[in-house]
Amino acid sequence: MEEPDVTAPGMPQLDFSTYPNQIFWLVVSIVVLYLILSRTALPRIAAVLADRRGTITNDIAAAEDAKAKAAEAEEAHKQALADARAETNRIIEAARQEIQAELDAQMAEAEAEIAARAAESEARIRAIRDSARDMVAEVARDTTREVLHLFDVKADARSVTAAVNARLKAEGGAQ
């Protein structure tokens, strides 16, 4: 059980005689590594990273540009489409209005003609009706007079006319 004593004094980590050696070489290697890194390696990697970031930014900017151009072209296309549509609508509207006006004029003309003919017809009908009524009255008076004559009833012409007229009026009012 004298293992601890066989190999130097216990734990090598606590062997103070090696401390100056370790510290010396540690400082040397840290300084060397620091110089290598800060002089060469880190600026180079930083440059590469910045370069890459620049490339990526440029590419993104270019892509953004192309996208904007595409959007512009699409906008122009849409504008042209909308213009064409508006023009079409305008033409259609104009044609429609023209036709409507013509139609209105013809309708008015036709209506006027119809009204004129209707008025004329009405006037003729009224004339026919009036003459018919006069004829009826005359026929009624003659017939009445003949009937009275046959019965040898003396009646003056005036009262016969009045009776017939009254009767005709009642008929006309009832009509």
Binding site: T18, N21, I36
Partner: peptide, 23 residues
């Protein structure tokens, strides 16, 4: 303090490895 020991060797290798990666 100046003796080249295994500390020296492995620290040198450490520096070399770091340099190999970064440079």
């Amino acid at each position: 303090w100046y003796t080249p020991t295994n500390v020296t060797l492995w620290m040198a290798l450490t520096v070399l490895a770091a340099t190999a990666l970064m440079v």
